[in-house]
């Protein structure tokens, strides 16, 4: 799994969007909303990512009802969920360590003020 870490922004948001059953267009829309329009997934990017994630076993097809022309939905698997959590811990560590920067600035300021 090391090779796949850290997750790309696209993969991170796709995994998030399929926490519940979601289809291609739904994923694009949700990611766009979550990021206030900053991340708009291209159809080629999303298609490729879905193929990769399916191959890795991180997501799986939830439903495919071709008779009623229902769209193909995907959902995250436990392996995908584990990868997401690992990424989340990595990001939390980054944020935690980022505080050091502020603390240093604060200490400097207080020593200046005496």
């Amino acid at each position: 799994m090391d090779k796949n870490s850290p997750l790309t922004e696209s993969i991170f948001y796709i995994l998030l969007a399929v926490r519940k059953p979601n289809h291609g267009y739904g994923i694009i829309q949700e990611v766009e909303q979550l990021t206030n329009g900053r991340v708009v997934l291209g159809a080629g990017t999303l298609y490729g990512a879905i193929q990769t994630l399916e191959k890795r076993g991180w997501i799986t097809i939830y439903s495919e009802d071709t008779a009623s022309r229902k769209k193909k939905e995907y959902i995250v698997t436990p392996i995908g969920r584990a990868a997401f959590d690992a990424e989340r811990r990595r990001l939390a560590e980054l944020l935690e360590n980022a505080k050091i920067m502020e603390e240093y600035a604060y200490e400097n300021l207080s020593s200046l003020l005496g």
Binding site: T8, E9, S10, V39, V40, L41, G42, A43, G44, T45, G48, A49
Partner: peptide, 15 residues
């Protein structure tokens, strides 16, 4: 809406 196929660096490199 706008139409782009590959929107991040990784997928563009792959393409």
């Amino acid at each position: 809406g706008p139409f782009l196929l590959y929107t991040d660096i990784d997928s563009s490199i792959e393409h």
